[in-house]
Design a protein around this nucleic acid. Structure first.
Length: 216
DNA sequence: AATTACTGCAACCGCAGGTTG
DNA sequence: ACAACCTGCGGTTGCAGTAAT
């Protein structure tokens, strides 16, 4: 169901994300936020492009995301909003707490566009959903999002690194900080693989990626 | 049991618009 | 005013799982 991982000609990893990569990205963003997607993978110890990291976070790792089946109310709302807004999936997703634009778009193409009859059914239900329960859950999701994000304790990640630059002299130290973050974000009994060499300065070997990410 | 067709969804690509220097 | 850079959006693709033959 996912694309086979590979390294492109620029040394950027593409394709499916490993659990290890997810943990690194999640831990980094929960601690530092994502002030700069372009720079983020470098500081987080990921060999991904910023775009790929953003997409993974927005569509899969972001706290508060709903997985699984769409309710009848959600489907009605998507159809209603699509009638009003067209293919503006991000605008539609805003009205569906916990759903990403990609998720809504996929669901539309897979299910809803084949069901034009739904547009005429019981519009009062969707109105009700829009005006009441939606906003309650939106507030709730926003809260859980912020909890997961740890916004109150988070400062600009890159600033943090800059501010602490006098304490972080080497890339080994930064790499060590990242590994600590990953460990802190995991259950106590969760075992993670750590790099036994300098991630930042070592040349990129094909074997390294094969061993680190593909040996599940 | 083997093969083919279909489905769902994660991920990629290219572009537009906003921001910065 | 302009160019370079960055982010976000929408369209599209790749592929594992499942259903149908």
């Amino acid at each position: 169901m996912v694309r086979t991982p590979f390294i492109d000609k620029n040394g950027i990893k593409r394709g499916a994300w490993s659990e290890d990569e997810d943990n690194k990205l999640r831990a980094f963003i929960q601690k530092f936020g994502h002030p700069n997607w372009r720079q983020l993978p470098k500081y987080a110890g990921l060999m991904r492009c910023g775009k790929s990291c953003r997409l993974r976070w927005m569509n899969y790792l972001r706290p508060g995301l709903k997985k699984g089946n769409y309710s009848h109310e959600e489907e009605e709302l998507i159809i209603k909003l699509h009638n009003e807004l067209g293919n503006r999936w991000s605008a539609i997703a805003v009205k569906l707490p916990g759903r990403s634009d990609n998720d809504v778009k996929n669901h539309w193409h897979a299910h809803l566009k084949k069901r034009p009859s739904l547009t005429n059914t019981n519009s009062s239900t969707s109105e009700q959903f829009t005006e009441s329960s939606q906003f309650d859950s939106q507030n709730h999701d926003q809260q859980s999002y912020e909890d997961g994000y740890n916004l109150s304790n988070t400062i600009n990640g890159m600033d943090w690194i800059e501010e602490n630059n006098n304490q972080i002299k080497t890339m080994e130290q930064l790499s060590s900080i990242n590994n600590t973050l990953v460990e802190q974000s995991l259950p106590n009994n969760f075992q993670i693989e750590t790099f036994d060499f300098n991630f930042w300065s070592e040349p990129l070997f094909d074997d390294f990626w094969t061993q680190s990410f593909f040996s599940q």
